[in-house]
Simulated scan of single mutants.
Amino acid sequence: MSEEPVSAAILLAAGTSSRMGAGRHKLLLPLAGRPLLQHCLEAILGSQARPLVIVLGHRAEEVRAALSDYAAHPAVEVVVNPAYAQGMSTSLRCGLQALLARAARLGEPPPASALIFLGDQPFISSRLIDRLIATWRSSGRRIVAPSYGGKRGNPVLFTADLFPELEQVEGDEGGRRVIERHRSELALVEVEERLAAYDVDTWEAYQAVLEGQPGQGQDNVPL
């Protein structure tokens, strides 16, 4: 049995997709024969990150149905954030609390860190996730993130001692202020796969993916 420290994963999938327009839910849009959200989910499950907490909110039952094939996976836990409309911070808090509650319920030690994912990154790879985890283990830094062309992106890994600070974040914000507060403890991993940063956040970005030209869309806004 490996004694290396464990990094969990939290997949934020609760947002309202307000920028997509026309009442569309971006995470449910079809991409290569399956809902967009499944691409990120499968990349996480193909990596070393365990367990995975998926936080739902907007149209939760529809999203849950789209993930039904993964519900029985022993490493997956799906939770619903009733306060999702109050911003990303509430989903992050919900995910962290669910992660710690799961460990207590199963009598397991809490994870030593957690990677925070946004559900609209369909091109993230298991290889990239494992690189971030390996960098955390070798560097001893408390925060690890990918750098796409010199620009910090997602997902972001935080060590467990930063969870209390993340739980104090408010509004429609992720861990940006926590990262700024601990900038000297941030390790950036330069990633050549720029496509991994692609954010399917608008109808135009989604159309660009379907047309095989995702470079014309937008890069993911850092957490």
Rank of each mutant, 00 (worst) to 15 (best):
P155V: 11
R127C: 05
A8D: 06
D199R: 03
F123T: 00
D120A: 04
E3H: 11
R194K: 09
L11Y: 06
V144Q: 05
G107F: 04
P109Y: 05
P214Y: 00
V200W: 00
A85V: 14
S7G: 13
G15D: 05
C40N: 08
L27G: 00
D201G: 02
I116N: 00
G21M: 07
A71H: 13
P122F: 00
A196W: 06
S125H: 11
E167A: 08
H182I: 12
D201V: 10
Q213V: 08
A49P: 02
T135V: 11
V80W: 03
A22D: 14
S184Q: 15
L132M: 06
L195I: 15
A14C: 04
L56A: 01
R181G: 04
I143R: 08
M1T: 05
N220T: 14
E4L: 14
I44N: 00
T202S: 15
A49C: 13
A160W: 10
R102C: 07
T16Q: 10
R93N: 12
S89F: 08
Y84C: 00
S18T: 06
E3G: 11
N81S: 04
A8H: 08
Y198S: 08
E167P: 03
E190G: 09
L186Q: 05
F117P: 00
I179H: 03
L186M: 08
G215E: 11
V55T: 01
Q168C: 11
L223T: 07
G46I: 13
R105F: 09
R141C: 15
P155F: 05
E190M: 03
S126M: 03
L67A: 01
D120E: 09
Y148L: 01
T202I: 05
E108M: 12
D130I: 06
